[in-house]
């Protein structure tokens, strides 16, 4: 049973990965938007890094996490979309009629989303380096950035899967991904916390989990190795993953149940 589970998960992941990369309309726009963020914000806003609050940090290193996180959300959000498609075109039932592990059927699209996310993150990092990025914590710092992106992406994949299996509707689960905007923009997106003007935005950025991911990534990109921001980011990831993955498992259980 155990080796079956591994083979099933491998097969389901492979199939979803093929589906993602064969459909450029899923993959390309997402990466373009992320790179667009990177290039446009860097071009338009990099002057503000002369403000003392930036403490001499390069704006490129500051804005890069925004590009990576938005790509991560887009990539992992595809997991839910692809499950809704399976439900709509009947392939989900076809899979339920095989002896395939039920967990593997839901896990496949999530892992495929992770693979997409990994490739995107590496690509964005490479573009950043090409634009002149220097990572303070070196190669290890790049790995940390990728891990944080993956952790945050996993949490978002859980959310998208839960939403998709609950609504079983393409439009509804598409609408569910709009949470992207508050997550990415109600945070320390463009300037450090001290420079945020409105009090409400300061408050929201404090409770927005994305802020801690930005902080963690920025700390390795700009300052080098610091314990606190990384610990906070890890804690936030564990917290939101446990919430969304639980939620996803419950909806998945319902979707494969026979009552």
């Amino acid at each position: 049973m155990n080796s079956n589970f591994i083979v099933d998960t491998y097969l389901m992941t492979k199939r979803s990965t093929i589906a993602i990369f064969r459909n450029p309309f899923i993959f390309i726009p997402n990466i373009i938007i992320s790179l667009f963020f990177l290039v446009v914000y860097q071009a338009g806003l990099s002057g503000i890094s002369n403000i003392p609050a930036f403490a001499g940090a390069s704006y490129l290193a500051f804005i890069l996490p925004v590009s990576i996180v938005s790509g991560a959300i887009g990539g992992s959000g595809g997991a839910g979309q692809s499950l809704v498609q399976d439900l709509e075109n009947g392939y989900f039932s076809r899979l339920l009629l095989t002896p395939t592990s039920r967990v593997a059927i839901v896990l496949g699209p999530i892992l495929a989303g992770m693979i997409q996310l990994f490739i995107q993150t590496v690509l964005i990092l490479l573009v950043g380096i090409w634009m002149g990025l220097e990572i303070a914590a070196g190669f290890g710092g790049a790995i940390v950035v990728i891990l944080l992106a993956a952790g945050f992406g996993l949490a978002f994949a859980g959310y998208s899967v839960a939403f998709a299996l609950k609504t079983k509707d393409a439009q509804a689960s598409q609408a569910g991904t709009f949470v992207f905007f508050p997550l990415v923009f109600l945070s320390t997106t463009f300037v450090p916390y001290e420079l945020i003007e409105a009090d409400w935005l300061k408050f929201v950025s404090k409770i927005n989990p994305t802020t801690y991911i930005f902080d963690g990534m920025r700390s390795v990109l700009i300052n080098g190795w610091e314990a606190e921001p990384l610990l906070n980011a890890a804690l936030v990831i564990v917290l939101i993953c446990s919430i969304t993955i639980t939620f996803a498992s419950l909806s998945a259980k319902k979707a494969v149940s026979r009552d």
């Binding site: 093929i18 589906a19 075109n89 009629l97 095989t98 002896p99």
Partner: peptide, 19 residues
Amino acid sequence: GIDPSLTGRELLHLQARLF
């Protein structure tokens, strides 16, 4: 019940592997 992004051969192959 078919996934439109795979080919006929791939779907049959995958189905066989799942069994």
